[in-house]
Structure formats: structure tokens, C-alpha cells
Computed example of a mutant assay.
Amino acid sequence: MRTKITISTAMLALVAACADSGANYQPILDGAPTPAYQADLDACQALARNQTQFDEDTIAASVLGAGVGAVLGEVDSGDPLEGAIAGALAGGVSGAVDASEKRESIVIECLRGRGHRVVG
């Protein structure tokens, strides 16, 4: 039991660390970068990184997943803790992926707004 909790905690920490990856996105440009590109990229990445509501959404997804997992674990195997752990991991991973995609999108749109020809 203790091993499951330790592994689950480590997995959630890993998911939380990966959530910031979208803010570090290096976009593909159509053409050569302008002299202002690196400064604009740094500013856009900082903007994406500072969107803490995405982290709150990831936590909410983990909590919701834990609740649903606990109910399903109780119904299916009589072990709500195991279900809660699995649900929290599933919700956390889903939330982290979503947050990463949103941060990546912010970087792209921010650079486009600053006049850079970003294609992806």
C-alpha cells in the first residue's frame, strides 16, 4: 500500500513538472528569424509560463479523477483507494497534456501577434 502511494506521488510530481513543457516550445518559422525574434520568443514563453490557471485546472482534473476513481474502485473491486490513485493519475496526466498544449498555443499566437511568420 505504501509503495503504491509513493509511486503515485512520484508520478504526479513528474506530471506537474512536464506541464511547463508547452511554454518552452520552439516554433517553426517560415523564413529566417528577425533580429527581435529571440527577445520576442523569450517574452512569449514567459507569458505562457505565467498562466497559472492551467496548473489549477490540472489539479482540479486530478481531484475529479480521484473522486471518480474512488467510486469506480469501490464498485469494481472494493478498493476505493486504489481507484482514487488511478483516477488521480489519469486526471493529472490529462490536465498536464491539456495545459502544455494551451501554453504552446500561447507561444505561437504571441509570436504571430508580434509579426513573426510562425507555421507551427
Score class of each variant (00 low, 15 high):
residue 23 A to N: 12
residue 23 A to E: 06
residue 24 N to C: 01
residue 24 N to A: 12
residue 24 N to W: 06
residue 25 Y to G: 02
residue 25 Y to K: 06
residue 26 Q to W: 10
residue 27 P to V: 05
residue 27 P to W: 03
residue 28 I to K: 15
residue 29 L to V: 08
residue 29 L to S: 08
residue 29 L to N: 07
residue 30 D to T: 03
residue 30 D to Q: 14
residue 31 G to K: 01
residue 32 A to H: 09
residue 32 A to P: 03
residue 34 T to N: 05
residue 35 P to I: 07
residue 35 P to R: 04
residue 35 P to F: 08
residue 35 P to C: 07
residue 36 A to P: 00
residue 37 Y to V: 05
residue 40 D to M: 09
residue 40 D to F: 11
residue 40 D to G: 06
residue 41 L to E: 04
residue 43 A to I: 01
residue 43 A to D: 04
residue 45 Q to G: 08
residue 45 Q to D: 01
residue 46 A to P: 00
residue 46 A to V: 00
residue 47 L to S: 10
residue 47 L to P: 00
residue 48 A to S: 09
residue 48 A to I: 01
residue 48 A to M: 07
residue 48 A to C: 03
residue 49 R to P: 00
residue 49 R to H: 14
residue 49 R to T: 04
residue 50 N to K: 12
residue 51 Q to M: 11
residue 51 Q to R: 09
residue 52 T to G: 12
residue 54 F to K: 00
residue 54 F to G: 01
residue 54 F to H: 14
residue 56 E to S: 12
residue 57 D to P: 00
residue 58 T to G: 09
residue 61 A to N: 13
residue 62 S to E: 14
residue 62 S to I: 07
residue 63 V to A: 15
residue 64 L to N: 02
residue 65 G to N: 09
residue 65 G to D: 07
residue 67 G to Y: 09
residue 67 G to V: 09
residue 68 V to D: 05
residue 68 V to N: 05
residue 68 V to F: 15
residue 69 G to R: 00
residue 71 V to R: 03
residue 72 L to A: 15
residue 74 E to K: 14
residue 74 E to Y: 10
residue 74 E to N: 09
residue 76 D to V: 14
residue 76 D to R: 14
residue 76 D to Q: 11
residue 77 S to Y: 08
residue 77 S to R: 15
residue 78 G to D: 06
residue 78 G to M: 06
residue 79 D to R: 11
residue 80 P to D: 09
residue 80 P to Y: 11
residue 81 L to F: 10
residue 82 E to T: 13
residue 82 E to C: 04
residue 83 G to A: 11
residue 84 A to F: 04
residue 85 I to N: 00
residue 86 A to K: 12
residue 86 A to L: 13
residue 87 G to R: 00
residue 88 A to D: 02
residue 88 A to G: 13
residue 89 L to W: 02
residue 90 A to N: 01
residue 91 G to F: 05
residue 91 G to N: 04
residue 91 G to D: 05
residue 91 G to H: 05
residue 92 G to V: 01
residue 92 G to S: 07
residue 92 G to W: 02
